[in-house]
Design a protein around this nucleic acid. Structure first.
Lengths: 173, 173
DNA sequence: CTTGGATAGTCAACAAGACTGACATAAAAT
DNA sequence: ATTTTATGTCAGTCTTGTTGACTATCCAAG
């Protein structure tokens, strides 16, 4: 079903009325939706004097316990110095544990502590609640389309890595 | 066809397998897609020593020529001090013109200059190209779903304003 | 075994762009 | 005349990005 659209790509522009105005409104939707998407966690993080960077670190460490700093760096696409400041705070505050690597002792493997898991859970529950609401209001087909377009919007090199990251679903519970 | 799913919202959770992992991957898609979405303009803006804030100002002034500072403030959701710094640069650099309001002379109506339009066009063309590509790869139905979910993700109060803003399509060309 | 280069991570200093708070000015509204 | 509104500005802070310099470790070649 999705396959047949690959061929139809050439026709899509007409089918979709891909006028500049249509595309512009898509751009605006992304802008406003992303703001909504981050609004709830942002509010919660204020109380801890943390920002989005902390949230992202907590999220991906939770997703892949034992992640090295370098791997996290690649995912987040920031400089190691920038990440390090955030990570240092989270380690000092006892939300993340940084263990020296067993095979390569230059590496640091990152894990959430008990309280790290608690904060991550609180943040992600707020965000999931908003997303669940949007999904349910929009309906199953819309959700499928939403995911399909978002995947296409990701940078091509990043895309395969993201998709394979998401394959690992359920491996950590 | 889409209508019938409104009723089915209650069943959606099952239909959609709205597990935490499903929702988590949606969250990650938003993160990575938004990065892709802003990547091209970000690169171009660097050459001008501008940032995303400048892009957003140019975008919305282009969208609604004659916009007042206050209206722009509401749209962007930042403080006037923050916006003012950006606006001052853009006015000094001759990209935005700030005219005293004709009915209310306290207000400043904002317009793009020739070169402001040029930069806005370059930025938005890059962004539209990425979105067009994603739309065409995903297909018409996916695009519809994408837009539906994004709308639902916007903060409820903001939503009506955004949607009515997007009704004005094509009024400026 | 030692030297040297590459890799992993840390520390320090700086910049952009958010923020708050205080204040100024002009014009509209009461 | 006084208050409120719209805008602009100054000063200072915070988050989060940047670059540059540094330490620690690994690995490979002599």
């Amino acid at each position: 079903m999705t396959r047949s659209f690959a061929n139809a790509a050439a026709r899509s522009e007409q089918l979709l009325f891909l006028t500049d105005e249509q595309l512009r409104s898509g751009i605006e939707l992304m802008f406003f939706a992303y703001r909504g998407f981050t609004a709830d966690p942002d509010r919660m993080l204020e109380e801890y004097d943390y920002g989005r960077a902390h949230h992202r670190a907590l999220h991906f460490v939770n997703r892949q316990p034992g992640l090295t700093v370098n791997a996290l760096l690649d995912i987040l696409g920031v400089t190691k110095q920038s990440l390090n400041r955030v990570l240092r705070q989270l380690v000092n505050d006892g939300l993340i544990e940084s263990r020296v690597g067993e095979v390569d002792r230059r590496q640091r493997n990152l894990y959430l502590t008990e309280s790290g898991r608690a904060l991550e859970k609180a943040l992600s529950e707020a965000q999931r609640a908003r997303m669940r609401k949007a999904y349910m209001a929009a309906g199953p087909e819309a959700v499928h389309g939403f995911r399909t377009v978002l995947e296409q919007m990701i940078d091509p090199e990043m895309r395969s890595r993201v998709l394979s990251l998401m394959q690992e679903d359920g491996s950590n519970g």
